[in-house]
Nucleic acid binder design. Structure first.
Lengths: 72, 72
DNA sequence: TGATATAGTGCAGTTTATTGCCTTATTTTT
DNA sequence: AAAAATAAGGCAATAAACTGCACTATATCA
């Protein structure tokens, strides 16, 4: 999962839940600026920040084995 | 996936692949100190750092929907 | 269209991650 | 047990994340 996909996932999930950046940032306990930077692709958040954001969205950061067989 | 589990996953995966911290750090292009701090639970790496490490281990950082039904 | 809400950005201060160097601890090998 | 390899940790410099504030841009709604 590339960086871009993580962003897209967060963005989409947030929109599905109909939460604004402002609310999400507040609930997650991270600065609004931080969330904005992340979602606009200008940011390299720490794992903790990422975790806090994901948590509020009912998601979790995980590591999974890459699939080497690409396009079937 | 808690922070602790991420650490455990990296550590175990690294050991399975029989790679030393030194080699992994080098291959991933991150400082040895950074990797040590992470694996010993004293560190809050950025997503980029995490990604570089995971990548070398044949893994990827991802976000998945949390499972709300815990222990059956 | 005008008003309002939501998202994006420049600037700057504070905190913290990243990193190397060097030392200590622990584990593994001979 | 001694030696070698690997992991852990203190210290300090540098780079970058985190943050608020104020402003701009864009989307949404009446």
């Amino acid at each position: 999962m590339h960086f871009t996909e993580l962003i897209k996932t967060v963005k989409e999930r947030r929109e599905v839940l109909k939460v604004t950046q402002e609310t999400l940032a507040e609930l997650a306990g991270v600065g609004l600026r931080t969330l904005k930077q992340f979602e606009s692709g200008k940011g390299n958040p720490t794992l903790l920040t990422m975790h806090k954001i994901a948590d509020v969205l009912g998601m979790e950061v995980c590591l999974k084995i890459k699939n080497v067989t690409h396009h079937p």
